[in-house]
Design a protein around this nucleic acid. Structure first.
Lengths: 243, 243
DNA sequence: GCATATTTGTCCGTATGTATA
DNA sequence: CTATACATACGGACAAATATG
């Protein structure tokens, strides 16, 4: 599908129906999530495009995608940067989380008890396995998946998308401090409790538990993040990387 | 700021800090909202780019922006089309509306009565003025603004953005049938009632009213839309327009 | 079913304005 | 203030897919 048959990240058009820009965006999204591109660094079109071996136009498409997901920040005539969340951003993210997550569970309370909890249970199991084997980064991932699956219970594609976007954004903040164990281990038990309560059919009580959960998590993360951003703050908004 | 000093949609760099692609996207967004580009039509790169006098690459970037707002649909090697919502889409939009709008009012019930209701009151006044003067299209706009302002009470930028996006999408469906009077006039009184109830400080009751409102609106629009889509359906996916 | 014309997808080269050293 | 680096936007090119006759 690409005109000049670029091989590095380009071909196999007939197999994958995604555009090259989307594939490049996938790569960059992973790099950001795993911290290879930490918040604050600039992604130069020349460098990144050179490494991946794609044209600037295509790369700009990818940047557009990630900018819309709020993972990158676009400053006019300055270029794109990995987003650095402010404390206000984190607060707003938790506002949205409370609104959506609690709202979904609240709707379940009205609908009735036959929920499909298998996917939710799987994330709890993943978290327990990760904890047993001291894989704290995986524990963080499982914890995030738990909340994604809570929202998935509403079976609303648009709600799922909003939640995915917000959680990916939150990961930017989590990555700035990452001590995954202290941040996530205490909440695993509460996830299990919420799951158990949902299994019993008492969605109203689960909603209360989730509300308290989010309140506690918000307090912990905001204080830790403000501290980290204040002391280790002012990460170089320059410092190109890539080549 | 543009290289070759394009005048039509190009210059005045020092004043407007937005890129040309965003400005072009603004124009197209308006054209879609006002129905000049109705759902289903294809936007040809050649035609639209020719009329607006911008290069193909820049136009494609605008298309990308609107595609991510779900106003355009991108079919591989076919071009971009103004989105045609399915009935499932409309159902999901109302799912999101109920979740967010009711959730926001529910949070107000916990927070306490000093809400800032001026902007909300203004939309009701706009609707009444539009009704008095038989400007049904403006009534529809005012009605949509009412719900946007309800959500704005939460003072959450991300929630605002989600709501704006969802309402812009809903407008695609409303435009397919447009008999704005029958669709919007009955709800003006209910808007006023909800505003009055919020003024009295009883957010809990306002939430119930809003919930019933959305339920009724959903039923009406879904049935009307399914009918319209079934009979008048299969709008030409061809029929270029522009020049 | 086939040949042609149109349109899209991708990439390159270049000119110009903007921000920073 | 000058110089450098880079983002922005343009036009052109060609391959591939689609539409048209």
């Amino acid at each position: 599908m690409p005109a000049h048959h670029n091989e590095l990240a380009g071909d196999r058009a007939l197999l994958s129906r995604t555009s090259t820009a989307e594939r490049v965006a996938d790569v960059l999204r992973s790099r950001i999530a795993e911290g290879f591109f930490p918040p604050g660094v600039r992604l130069s079109e020349g460098d990144v495009g050179g490494v991946l071996g794609i044209s600037r136009n295509t790369l700009r498409e990818s940047f557009r995608l990630l900018t819309h997901e709020r993972l990158l920040e676009h400053r006019l005539n300055r270029g794109v940067f990995v987003r650095v969340l402010s404390v206000d951003d984190v607060l707003d993210i938790y506002r949205v989380r409370k609104l959506i997550e609690c709202g979904v569970v609240n709707q379940l309370a009205e609908a009735g008890p036959p929920f499909g909890l298998d996917a939710l249970a799987a994330t709890v199991a993943d978290g327990q396995a990760a904890t047993r084997e001291w894989r704290w980064r995986d524990l963080a991932t499982a914890n995030i998946h738990f909340h994604r699956e809570v929202v998935a219970l509403a079976r609303s594609p648009r709600t799922d998308e909003v939640m995915s976007s917000v959680l990916a954004e939150l990961r930017l903040a989590l990555h700035v401090m990452d001590s995954p164990r202290r941040l996530h281990e205490p909440y695993l038990a509460r996830n299990r409790e919420i799951l158990r309560t949902l299994r019993s059919g008492d969605a109203a009580r689960a909603e209360t538990m989730l509300r308290e959960y989010l309140e506690d998590s918000r307090k912990q993360i905001v204080t830790a993040y403000a501290q980290r951003l204040g002391s280790g703050g002012d990460r170089d908004a320059q410092g190109a990387r890539g080549a």
